[in-house]
Write a protein that binds this DNA or RNA. Structure first.
Lengths: 157, 157
DNA sequence: AATTACAGGTTGCGATATGCAACCCTTATC
DNA sequence: GATAAGGGTTGCATATCGCAACCTGTAATT
């Protein structure tokens, strides 16, 4: 059984607060989902999500500020602007899918009739899980904290 | 290359909104993190997170309502109440870690000096990733949507 | 038994964030 | 030049957040 407690009480040493600073606001994840689905224009997000325009404007700016999306005026029609995911944005896919799978597992809305499949083999993907380096699936009790570069287990607080 | 677009525009068929309904508010994930770290009492959450008491009260009630945490009066000292994660709550760990790993990868705060390790082997865990049934790691472009129980690829919108 | 302290809240009030509708500015299209 | 489309901004009403003070029921102290 792993050491349950994360020794440091401060939130500073944890990536969660910085992740939430970007993605923790209402609509951020839904905008992300829409972007993954290929939406790029302000009006698309607006009509698709039903989000208020001022909030959408605010969120898009924020996502761009934080490097999750990229804002590029469209060369062909200079009224149009394209919002696209950056690599940093693409890296949110596991987190989004994990959240989504959880929501689907427990959500009130009946299971979606769509499944994500591995396009190469045509089989549904595995549920997102915590895995050891060798691929074994791990639960919370299989985990422990370790100081980086150390071999010693901490035993703090 | 996968079919990029998720055909249905409605959010109903997607677990993300229902997940966000529970976990999408400010503090929800930080409370979850604290709970994973073994905190159980109101005052612990309050002092640890620095969250306002009324909001904490509200969030805990909400998490209990949604079955993520469980509220049990303490038999030994009946002033005390224990808030513990349910199995549904424990199932949020992959999502939380994915978010956290993302925040640590890109966050402004320097990398934490703590690493999660597989307690059995003592090695750091693998980054949370999307995997095929056979364990291959997949990116967004390796994915496609498929109607449940069908072999046919949809090609909508 | 009375007093104090502790755990877990609730209440009021000001500060933010959100949602809605209307308006604005720039760039196409006719 | 008139009109419309895309991408916003502005004003105002409402909901949520954060802080401090207060309340309630249960130990612990005297």
């Amino acid at each position: 059984m792993g050491k349950l407690r994360e020794p440091l009480k401060d939130l500073a040493g944890c990536g969660l607060p910085s992740a939430l600073e970007v993605m923790g606001e209402r609509w951020s994840f839904l905008i992300l989902r829409a972007a993954f689905n290929g939406l790029v224009h302000f009006e698309e997000f607006s009509s698709e999500l039903g989000i208020a325009r001022n909030i959408l404007s605010n969120r898009l700016s924020r996502l761009v500020e934080h490097g999750v999306m990229e804002r590029t005026p469209c060369a062909a029609d200079r009224r149009k602007i394209e919002y696209r995911l950056t690599p940093k944005g693409h890296d949110l896919l596991p987190a989004m899918l994990a959240l989504r799978q959880w929501g689907e597992k427990y959500g009130s809305s009946g299971v979606s009739d769509l499944v994500l499949i591995d396009a190469e083999k045509g089989e549904p993907i595995a549920p997102i899980a915590i895995r050891a380096a060798d691929g074994r699936e791990l639960g919370w009790h299989d985990l422990a904290w370790q100081a980086r570069g150390s071999t010693d287990q901490d035993d703090c607080c």
